[in-house]
Amino acid sequence: MKLGISEIFSGIGHRDGSWSVDAAQLIEGLGYNSVWMPEHVVFFPAYSSEYPYERGGRDEVHAVRGVLDPLVTAAAVATATTRIRIGTYVLVVPQRNPVVTAKQIASIDQLSGGRFQLGAGVGWSEQEYRALDTPFERRGERMNEYLAAMRTLWSPDEVVEYHGEFVDFEPLYCFPKPRQARLPIIVGGNSRAALRRIVAYGDGWAGYSRTHDDIQRFVDELATELERAGRSLDEVSIKVGRRSKGTTEKDWEDDRAYIERCAEIGVDEVVVSPRIADEDYERRMRRYAEIVGV
């Protein structure tokens, strides 16, 4: 069982750019497998869209004013660390130009020595889409095509082209290529659409806020759909996000129990979000690592 940390790299107040790099180095030093950056381009004082996950996550999102851009942060972390895997949990792909995004991600993978993982999702905030002047409708179809186009841009072929409804480019060069022969796309979401997207484009699942029964059902369905497509569950990584329910050691022991049960049902990695306050961050992160058993 691998463990990752998803942290709020806000760039606000005490959590400036240097704090973010220091935190990533600490997380690497504690022995975690990976560090993950969340994404929202903008936040709002009030939301019209319903947050799709558990209440604690909703309350947190409603309280956040901003986060550092995850790809910029990933580049900084890549040059400041040597071992830890680096990813997005998750990048809202349909809001970004896929040609530019493919180049940025390939550059990060080169800078990191092949340690980047693209956690990708469709997002849930219609207001954010409006602010970015991007259609909220059919965002799933848009994402599918963006992922396919990025795979084309990352292919080893020197000259590539893509022709679709949402992405259309003539033969071109797109360098650098990723360091990894196949850069992992970890598909976020708990829906049937997310499941189909994993089968068609993905190398893993980035679930979030799921019970163990929910996880088992999703994985069973995924195994069936992969087999129908001529693929195997062995080809994909099963990751589950866990937002700690509190900040006490009892809460962290609950995280450990959750992680242990995930290991029993075949989850490859749990990405935990302990949400430790800035004050005494290092000492408490070290204690959290001791409790959850990194």
Results as ranks from 00 to 15, higher is better:
Tyr201His: 14
Arg210Tyr: 10
Arg284Trp: 08
Asp234Gly: 08
Val271Pro: 05
Ala223Met: 06
Arg284Val: 10
His212Ile: 00
Val272Gln: 05
Val267Pro: 05
Asp251Leu: 06
Ala257Asn: 14
Asp234Trp: 02
Val271Thr: 10
Thr247Glu: 15
Val267Asp: 07
Ile276Trp: 09
Gln216Tyr: 07
Ile215Tyr: 05
Asp203Tyr: 03
Arg242Val: 09
Thr224Gly: 12
Leu222Thr: 00
Arg275Lys: 13
Gly266Thr: 02
Gly266Met: 03
Arg217Ile: 08
Glu269Ser: 12
Val270Asn: 00
Asn190Arg: 03
Thr224Asp: 15
Ala194Asp: 02
Asp234His: 05
Ile238Glu: 03
Arg210Ile: 15
Leu226Ile: 02
Asp280Met: 07
Asp255Arg: 01
Arg210Cys: 15
Glu279Ile: 10
Ile276Ser: 10
Phe218Leu: 09
Tyr201Asn: 13
Leu195Pro: 00
Ile215Glu: 07
Asn190Ser: 11
Ser237Val: 14
Ile259His: 02
Glu260Met: 14
Arg284Ser: 11
Gly266Tyr: 01
Glu269Arg: 14
Lys245Trp: 09
His212Trp: 00
Leu233Thr: 06
Gln216Val: 13
Glu260Pro: 12
Glu235Phe: 05
Arg197Glu: 11
Ala223Asp: 13
Glu227Leu: 09
Arg283Glu: 10
Thr248Ser: 12
Asp278Gly: 15
Gln216Ala: 13
Glu264Ile: 02
Glu264Ser: 15
Arg286Pro: 03
Val267Met: 12
Val236Leu: 06
Asp203Asn: 07
Arg261Lys: 15
Ser191Val: 03
Ser237Pro: 03
Asn190Cys: 04
Asn190Asp: 08
Tyr208Arg: 06
Val267Ile: 13
Arg210Trp: 10
Ala200Glu: 15
Val240Gly: 01
Ser273Cys: 13
Ala223Lys: 11
Arg256Met: 11
Asp213Ser: 13
Arg197Gln: 14
Val219Cys: 08
Glu225Asp: 15
Ser232Val: 04
Gly241Lys: 00
Asp268Ser: 14
Arg192Glu: 14
Val199Thr: 06
Glu221Trp: 07
Val219Thr: 09
Arg228Gly: 13
Arg196Ser: 11
Gln216Lys: 10
His212Leu: 01
Arg243Glu: 08
Ile198Met: 05
Ile198Gln: 02
Gly202Tyr: 01
Val236Gly: 04
Asp268Tyr: 05
Glu279Asp: 11
Tyr281His: 14
Val272Ile: 14
Glu279Val: 12
Arg192Tyr: 09
Glu249Pro: 02
Asp234Met: 06
Tyr281Leu: 15
Ser244Ile: 02
Gly241Gln: 00
Glu260Ile: 10
Leu226Phe: 03
Arg284Gln: 12
Ile238Val: 12
Ile276Ala: 12
Glu264Gly: 10
Ile238Leu: 08
Asn190Ala: 07
Arg217Ser: 12
Gly246Val: 04
Arg286Cys: 08
Thr224Leu: 11
Ala206Thr: 07
Trp205Ile: 04
Ala263Phe: 01
Arg210Gly: 12
